[in-house]
């Protein structure tokens, strides 16, 4: 594993900012995208996250991390949040917040699970469920930067209706190949029967290891553990496989 490159603004204290919710878009039955207005936002790299802090009236406070979904775009920031059933924070963000509300956050955080527009090598993105969020940020940042780096995106979801960013992905982009891996229920015309991700999926829809792609894998722990192990078994150098997990 290489030493992580140092992101900008090191040494600056990551101060808490107050954002205003300016938009709320439903992405699936359990996920919404919140658009935030953040005066003075310094910008971010694709793949970074923010820390969100919620404070109750009695002063009780708690924090969670959420990946940024939008490409750098001035003072506007999109967070896509998946509701965790029984969760303390995500149901509030998904069900309670409406435009006009305010939200405390700080960031951007993370200097390893990032894609920079200077990268020209082939990129493999493997998403499990809402692990798609930081990878979609990379897809959007690539397009916004006019990058011609070849991207392959493997999206794993339980059913087609669980998939985030459906219409945007269907629309596609030149140089971006998207493959869907449904685990429970696939559309009738899908060439792949439903099932969990397997090495064949990475062979068929990923890059050969000798193309030396950088691979980004994000999703639930078991999904990331398996996928990263498959990539190494298929011959990808471990230092080219970057992972981020939740749950």
């Amino acid at each position: 594993m290489a030493r992580a490159a140092i992101p900008g603004r090191l040494g600056d204290r990551l101060r808490w900012r107050t954002a205003e919710v300016t938009g709320r878009r439903v992405e699936s039955a359990t996920a919404v995208t919140l658009t935030l207005d953040l005066p003075g936002w310094p910008g971010h790299l694709a793949g970074q996250h923010v820390d969100v802090r919620l404070t109750a009236e009695d002063g009780y406070s708690t924090q969670r991390s959420y990946s940024i979904a939008s490409a750098p775009n001035g003072r506007s920031l999109d967070l896509t949040v998946q509701r965790t059933s029984g969760g303390e924070v995500s149901p509030y963000l998904v069900d309670e917040l409406v435009p006009g509300d305010r939200l405390e956050l700080r960031g951007p955080v993370g200097g390893w699970f990032v894609w920079r527009q200077q990268q020209t090598e082939p990129i493999l993105l493997v998403a499990g469920g809402s692990g798609l969020v930081p990878l979609m940020c990379m897809v959007r940042a690539r397009e916004a930067a006019g990058s011609r780096a070849p991207f392959r995106l493997l999206c794993a979801a339980r059913t087609p209706s669980d998939l985030l960013y459906r219409s945007e992905l269907r629309q596609g982009a030149p140089g971006l190949d998207t493959t869907y891996l449904y685990s429970r229920e696939a559309p009738a015309d899908s060439p792949r029967p439903p099932g969990r991700i397997a090495p064949e999926d990475l062979v068929r829809s990923g890059w050969p290891p000798d193309f030396e792609p950088t691979c980004y894998v994000c999703g639930p722990t078991a999904f990331v553990e398996k996928t990263a192990a498959y990539l190494v078994l298929l011959g990808h150098a471990p230092e080219r496989v970057r992972t981020e997990r939740f749950g």
């Binding site: 594993m1 708690t62 969670r64 390893w112 722990t221 990263a228 192990a229 190494v232 471990p238 997990r245």
Partner: peptide, 18 residues
């Protein structure tokens, strides 16, 4: 400060498990 309790055992690492 800022933490929450979990009874699971989440995993965090930056790359594949050696």
């Amino acid at each position: 400060p800022g933490q929450y309790e979990t009874t699971g055992f989440p995993v965090l690492s930056a790359g594949p498990t050696p």
